[in-house]
Every structure is written in structure tokens, then in C-alpha cells.
Design a protein around this nucleic acid. Structure first.
Length: 474
RNA sequence: CGAGGCGUAGCGCAGUUUGGUAGCGCGCUUGGUUCGGGACCAAGAGGUCGUGGGUUCAAAUCCCGUCGCCUCGACCA
């Protein structure tokens, strides 16, 4: 009986994909949209995104990046200007052919990403070395007509931020590509409480039109990897395609160097799958829409609701996001509901607590109950939320590091990924070997390690050029 | 696009083999008693059985077509 609600959610150990879908839908984060492959983000889910936006945006601003907005529709001819780019995205773009009751002269692409239209505008805006660097970010939706979809992880339409910059030199643009990767990594750690692996992507996995792509990969409960953010160094590919030219200090007309970076609502999927447990969501305090939920006990008894309202006000003044659940549901029902929704801390307040000047506190990450002083509720709970963040990060980090194994042969690599691990292995750098790994172990190269520590290639046995993290991926 | 599965109340399903009054659980509405881990009692609302055709006295059930969805493969933030 007590676990009736658990039966609503699939078993996290044995049925991970189903568990994920159950949690996302049953905790009312999203609903399915009428158009296949789209999702409706409900208020509770969107509040998580707003918190992610706020935290990330303040970091961008601090780094000197400004927000802008570019149009949803991109002329088809823009897409075809960069050869690799169009080839990479053509299979998944949605195209508008009619508008205003008539067929359009030139079809319009619903943006799958905005390199082309931003490149076009950069071409107009950049004239002199004094105009550089030009660093912009936009928060928007994009559309990629994927064949199979899953809420947050892969939907036809998704929300993201895409940052785009032009620099005068190769060194600056490359450096910015790495800086943003590190900004993402720090963000994942301190805001999402999520450890990640970062590094350069292989040629096969890189962004269409880029010179180099870097990725941030997070490990899910089942040992599969989820690409959670990417940064791209474009060299002069897009600058040449869109005429992004400037006159340098030396008076010479030259092309700029561009780079871009993005994270999407997929981050929400990542934190669900990183922290969640058998009871449902566990949301990291920095992004939780509700950080503390107050559940009154015996609400009709005199003074209980008053005490709850007073506590809520004090906690709000302390800067916490607080919800007082004064609905007619029974306390047990509320406990389970808010646990499933991942609220980090619950405060139970009843006649017994009030009489003793205490509050009963339940923390979602460990599911432990304790009593804290009502008088110092604000400070106590702020400290507890910090402790929960730290604990979530350390737990996830420990799990990730325990599940990174080394392999010297394809058999070892297969055994590793079958066991739900990331596999660190040597690679000679050729496409054939990368394909062979995928065919043999259904694992792809996620990112390359900073240094090459392996002796030989896991597939062909020739000397290793890169050490690569291989994993199955979402 | 290849292979499998499923469409019956808001959600989850039974009923289909062997044709015969449209069912169950949860949820919802109203009233009452409850409230420290998904409470209980009573009364109630809610269905073109995905859809088109056929067989039959009679179709959720049998036959033919069609549409939609899900899972697994190839593509991907």
C-alpha cells in the first residue's frame, strides 16, 4: 500500500528507458504534443528550464556575451552556402513552401541551428578589426525532424541557447571554443550537480561544417552517455561562405574566424537520468522549481496553518523557493507526490512540532528524516540545500569514475560497454577503426581524452594516436 | 524504410479463441468522517469499442481494407 505509487513508475534497475518516460510524464514535466515528436513543456518542467536559463545567462553576461535574436525562418539558399553544413542537416530540416495563400518563390527552412542566418548578418556587421570580437547568444527554439523521439532527449522541436562569435584570429576563436566548454563544465557541476567528461570529438562525430567539435558527455544510470553540450570551432568555413570579412590593423581585407556553442532542454533529461531514483525525480536545489515544500499535519487544528504560512514567509525572505501544500489531500499523499516530483527538502509541520519549536525535515537525496530548530529555519535549510547539492554531485561523480574502464582489445571494449561502463581505449585515428568499434560493440567515440595514454589502437593494434572514451549513447 | 506489438471511459487494462445487455481498477463530481507515509463510507457522472466496408436475426468479437501509435534497427543537441 505504501508503495502503491512506485508501481506507477517502471523499475529503474531493469527498465531504464521506460522509467525515464514514466518519470517525465507522471511528474507532469511534459505532455505529448499533437504533432508527433513534439512535447508540451508543462509549468513545472518549464520552471526548471527557466532556472537553467537564468544561471547560464548570468555566466554568459559575466563572460561578456550579449543576447540577440534572429529569425525562425531561413532562406533555403543560405543553407546551401556551406557544403558540409547542408549535407549534414538536409535530412532533418522542415521546409515552409507556402505562405500567405501562395507558393513561395524560395522555400524557407525552419532553423535547425542558426549558423547560416547569423553568418549572413555577421557579414553585414563586420567591417573593421574594431568590430571584433563580436560575441552573441540567442535563446530560441529549433526544429530537427528526427525519426525517433523521446521527451527532452530528442524531440522534433527543442529549446536551447546558441552562442556565435567572430574573432580576428584563429587563436582567439579556438581559445573561446575551449573557454565555453569549460564554462559548460563548471555550470554542469555547480548548477546541475552533474559530473561530465569533456573533450574533442572525432571527425565522424563533429558538427557539420566545423573544423573541430568539443563535447560534454554525462553518464546516465544505465551507463549510457548523453551528449549534454557542444562547442564548435568553425575556422573560416562559415566566414568564407557568408563573406564575414574585415580590414585588419595592417590594412589587409581578411576573413574572420567563427565559433559556436549550445546547450538545450536536453540538459533537463540529463539531470533526470543522472539523479533520479526508484521514487522518481531528484532535482538539484539550484534548478528545482520548488526547493522546500511545507506539508501541514492536522491542518485543521488551530495554529497549524498559521505557523505554516509564517514559516513560508520567513523562508521566502531567506531567498528560498517555497511551496506550501495546503490542498485537501492527505499528508501521505503529499509526501509521495512531492518526492516523485523531486523537491529536495520537505518540511512537515504539525501540532507536535510547533509545541516543541521544531520542524520535521525530510531530504530527498537520502530519504532521511530529522528534526531542526524552527527558530533558525532559514539558515538551517539553506545549509541543508547546499549539502544536498554537494552530495548529489559527489554521488554521481563517484558512480561515473567507478564505471570508466580501460580496454586494449575489442572484446574487452564490448565487455566494458555491456557492463554499463564508459571504456577508455587507444585509437589509431582512422575512420575504419571507429566504424569497426561501432559495429562490434554498438559503441561510439564520445570524446577524446586530453592526452594519449594508450599504447595501441583497440581495433587494429597499430600505435595509438588518441585515447578515446567509447560508450553507448542516447 | 525493414521486423514485431497495440488501438475498448481522462489514465491503465479485461472482454476477441467459441458472435448474444459495455466491464474492472485508478482518477473525476457531491456529501460526510478523517489527516505524523498515497484514508474510509455513501451516492453519481463519464464509451461513435481507431476508422471504412462486408458476413449475420445479431459484431468490440469473424473477413477485407485503411489510419494512428509504441518498441527494435539505419540518422541525430
Amino acid at each position: 500500500m505504501a508503495n502503491q505509487f512506485v508501481s506507477q513508475i517502471a523499475d529503474i534497475e531493469t527498465d531504464f528507458p521506460q522509467w525515464y518516460t514514466d518519470v517525465v510524464v507522471k511528474t507532469k514535466l511534459v505532455d505529448y504534443g499533437p504533432v508527433k515528436g513534439t512535447m508540451v513543456i508543462r509549468p513545472y518542467g518549464y520552471a526548471i528550464w527557466e532556472n537553467i536559463q537564468r544561471e547560464l545567462d548570468s555566466r554568459f553576461k559575466q563572460a561578456g556575451v550579449e543576447n540577440a535574436y534572429f529569425p525562425l525562418l531561413i532562406p533555403m539558399s543560405f543553407m546551401t552556402k556551406e557544403a558540409e553544413h547542408v549535407e549534414g542537416f538536409a535530412p532533418e530540416v522542415a521546409v515552409v513552401t507556402h505562405a500567405g495563400g501562395a507558393k513561395l518563390e524560395e522555400p524557407l527552412v525552419v532553423r535547425p541551428t542558426s549558423e547560416t542566418i547569423i553568418g549572413h548578418m555577421m557579414g553585414k556587421w563586420v567591417e573593421s578589426w574594431r568590430d571584433l570580437p563580436l560575441r552573441m547568444n540567442q535563446w530560441c527554439n529549433v526544429m530537427r525532424w528526427e525519426k525517433t523521439t523521446r521527451p527532452f532527449l530528442r524531440t522534433s522541436e527543442f529549446l536551447w541557447q546558441e552562442g556565435h562569435s567572430v574573432y580576428a584570429t584563429e587563436e582567439e576563436a579556438e581559445q573561446e571554443t575551449l573557454n565555453m566548454l569549460h564554462l559548460y563544465e563548471e555550470f554542469a557541476k555547480t548548477v546541475l550537480c552533474m559530473p561530465v567528461l569533456t573533450g574533442r570529438k572525432t571527425e565522424k562525430e563533429k558538427f557539420a561544417g566545423a573544423v573541430a567539435t568539443y563535447g560534454m558527455e554525462a553518464m546516465m544510470h544505465d551507463g549510457k552517455s548523453l551528449q549534454s553540450g557542444t562547442t564548435h570551432y568553425m575556422g573560416q568555413n562559415f566566414a568564407k561562405a557568408f563573406g564575414v570579412q574585415f580590414t585588419g590593423k595592417d590594412g589587409v581585407l581578411q576573413h574572420g574566424y567563427t565559433m559556436s556553442y549550445g546547450v538545450s532542454t536536453r540538459l533537463i533529461g540529463a539531470l533526470i537520468m543522472t539523479h533520479g531514483d526508484q521514487r522518481g525525480l531528484i532535482l538539484p536545489p539550484p534548478v528545482a522549481p520548488v526547493q522546500v515544500v511545507i506539508v501541514p499535519i492536522a491542518a485543521k487544528k488551530e495554529g497549524v496553518l498559521d505557523a505554516c504560512h509564517a514559516l513560508r514567509e520567513r523562508l521566502q525572505k531567506a531567498g528560498l523557493r517555497v511551496k506550501l501544500d495546503d490542498s485537501e489531500n492527505s499528508p501521505g499523499w503529499k509526501f509521495n507526490e512531492w518526492e516523485m516530483k523531486g523537491v529536495p527538502v520537505r518540511v512537515e509541520l504539525g501540532p507536535r512540532d510547533i509545541e516543541n519549536g521544531k520542524m520535521t525535515v525530510f531530504r530527498r537525496d537520502t530519504c532521511e528524516k530529522s528534526e531542526l530548530e524552527l527558530a533558525s529555519a532559514g539558515e538551517e535549510l539553506c545549509a541543508l540545500l547546499g549539502e544536498i547539492s554537494e552530495n548529489l554531485y559527489q554521488k554521481a561523480k563517484k558512480r561515473m569514475h567507478e564505471r570508466i574502464v580501460n580496454a586494449e582489445t575489442l572484446d574487452e571494449l564490448l565487455k566494458g560497454v555491456d557492463g554499463g561502463n564508459f571504456v577508455r581505449a587507444g585509437w589509431c585515428g582512422c575512420r575504419e577503426c571507429e566504424d569497426r568499434v561501432k559495429e562490434f560493440a554498438q559503441a561510439t567515440a564520445r570524446v577524446m581524452d586530453g592526452e594519449n595514454t594508450a599504447a595501441k589502437c583497440v581495433a587494429c593494434g597499430k600505435p595509438s594516436v588518441h585515447t578515446v572514451f567509447f560508450a553507448r549513447a542516447y
